[in-house]
Structures are given as structure tokens and as C-alpha cells.
Write a protein that binds this DNA or RNA. Sequence first.
DNA 1: ACAGCTTACTTGAACTCTCAAGTATCTGGA
DNA 2: TCCAGATACTTGAGAGTTCAAGTAAGCTGT
Lengths: 151, 151
Amino acid sequence: MIVTRWLDDDEQRAWRAFLTASQLVQEELDRQLQRDSGMPHAYYAVLVKLSEAPDRMLRMSELAAEVNSSQSRLSHAVARLEERGWVRRERCAADKRVSWAVLTDEGFAALAAAAPGHVEAVRQSFFDLLDPEQLHRLTEICAVLLKRTAP
Amino acid sequence: MIVTRWLDDDEQRAWRAFLTASQLVQEELDRQLQRDSGMPHAYYAVLVKLSEAPDRMLRMSELAAEVNSSQSRLSHAVARLEERGWVRRERCAADKRVSWAVLTDEGFAALAAAAPGHVEAVRQSFFDLLDPEQLHRLTEICAVLLKRTAP
DNA sequence: ACAGCTTACTTGAACTCTCAAGTATCTGGA
DNA sequence: TCCAGATACTTGAGAGTTCAAGTAAGCTGT
């Protein structure tokens, strides 16, 4: 039988602070993007990754990995983005299972329109609150949280 | 005209690390709870807060504030929890607009059953990865992110 | 060459969340 | 008193996410 190692008070506080802070920041940015640009943050992330890719295109599976999404989620998301004309799908000739997601000019324009407001929001709810020392440490800590190889 | 203060490379890294780390941790725990206990993390949080409240009951609006949720979201959530018999609603006699959410014995039992596995998961994806120094700093930083009064 | 596994992606249904609108109740001032 | 506005909560519709299952195409070993 395994005895649960419950969280002590300090751990409780630490955990709830992390959870609440990250929720708060994410919700705030999601709301800002939805309100000002009519897209959730997940869609914004897709557009960003595509815009940074060579020829503004990526395989669906690569794109999913880049934006930290399941294939299913991405597939639905790209379907919506396609409806808006912001992304286009292209079947790969070499391997017909693969499809490429391609950022259209309209998609790039939508991203360009959304970006300034979003960056400003990120500054307000994140960077402007932290000094360089804190920022550096937070980055390190987050890197640690990410490093452990998923099971 | 306002000139956008774009993020420099360090800022990009910091921001993406924070976003990715917090998403990863949250998704992991959400998945764990859903898989092992059939509830999303948001519902678990509701049960926890109720279990800690005097008489295991809270007004809907207080509960919403405690779990960082909109009233609408909480109302839907409590409706689902009520269907499962984990929470019960009681109209307040003094102010009939108010309703109390009350944790039932079944709800408490469900929480008790879910907690050990969840705590273990939190250890694995959070505490076990950080040393005490990092934990302390992270808590401070998250407190800063939370402190700014929402507009 | 071809049966069976793997890979890449899609689909559908169930569920949660959001936003806006709706209901009921209370409160403060004319 | 009474009504206009505030408060507490609910409801419904639309959208995104998840999970499991489904399709299609490539690979592998015999």
C-alpha cells in the first residue's frame, strides 16, 4: 500500500499560486485575442508558427507538435482557419498521408493585425510585472518543468 | 500612433517557456483527473473548496471567486456535479437570490477517492522537478503576477 | 506480392466553456 | 410606496477540446 505524500502548507501555497497565476495570465490573453481579433489563443499560435516556417507551411503533425496540440485538436482548428481563408491545406505528393498547412496572405494579414494588441497585452500581464532577475529565474524554472521527458 | 514594443529574443524565450510549461502542467493534471476520476480539474477544484469551507457549503458567487471561475461557468459546473449527486443547491432564506452549494457525502467521498492520485500527479509533474530554492522563487514570482489588481 | 502493422490525419459525439441575454430578488431614493 | 438600478444567479446557443473510432497510405517481413 502506498501512503500519499500530502502537500504541506508551503507546498499548497506554491502550487495554488502557480496554478492560479498561469490560469489568470492565459485567460486574460485568450480573452484579449478573442475580443480584439476574434480568435482564441490556440489559433493565434497556429498562425504564428506558420508565419515563422519556411514558405509559411508546415506538415500537420509538425505544426501540432509546435503548438503543443493533439492532432485532433489541430485538425479541427485548421478546419476553422480554412473556413476563414487564413490557412489552406495541401496534400503532399511524395507521401499522400501527409498534408501541409499553408498560411494564406489573408491569414498573414490577420496575424499582422492581431499581433500588436496581443504583444501589448502580454507586456501588461507578464513582462511589465517582472524585473529582469525574476524573468530570468522564471524562464529557468519553466525550462526545468518542460525538460522531463513525457512518459 | 503607438509603436509596438515587440518582444526581443530573450523575451520570446521567456514567454514561450512560461506559456508552454504552464499549459503542459495543466493539461497533464486535467488528463490525469479525467482518466482516473472522471472529472476535469475545474470540478475537482470546486469539490476541494467546498470541502474546506465551514459546513462544506459556500455561496455560488464566493465559490466562483475561490475557484477563479465566472458565475456562468460555475453554474454549469455545479449543475453537472448536482446530476452526479456530489453537490446540492440550497436556496438562501434571508436573500432569495442567493444559493448555497453544499458538498454531499458522496461528493466528499469522490474527492477523497480522487485526491491521492491527483496529489501524486502534482508531485510528479511539479514538485519533484524543483528544488526548494526554485520552488520558493517561483512562488514569489507567481504572487507578483497575481498581485496586480484586475482592471 | 501481399497481409498486417504503423503512420498521418480526419471525423463525430460528448462535454466544457464563453458570451450575451434572461429571471428573480433586493435596495435606495423620489 | 414604488420604480429604477443593482445584485445573484441561470439559461441557451455557439465554439473549442477531447476521446475513441475511422480512413487512407506507406512500410515490413515472409
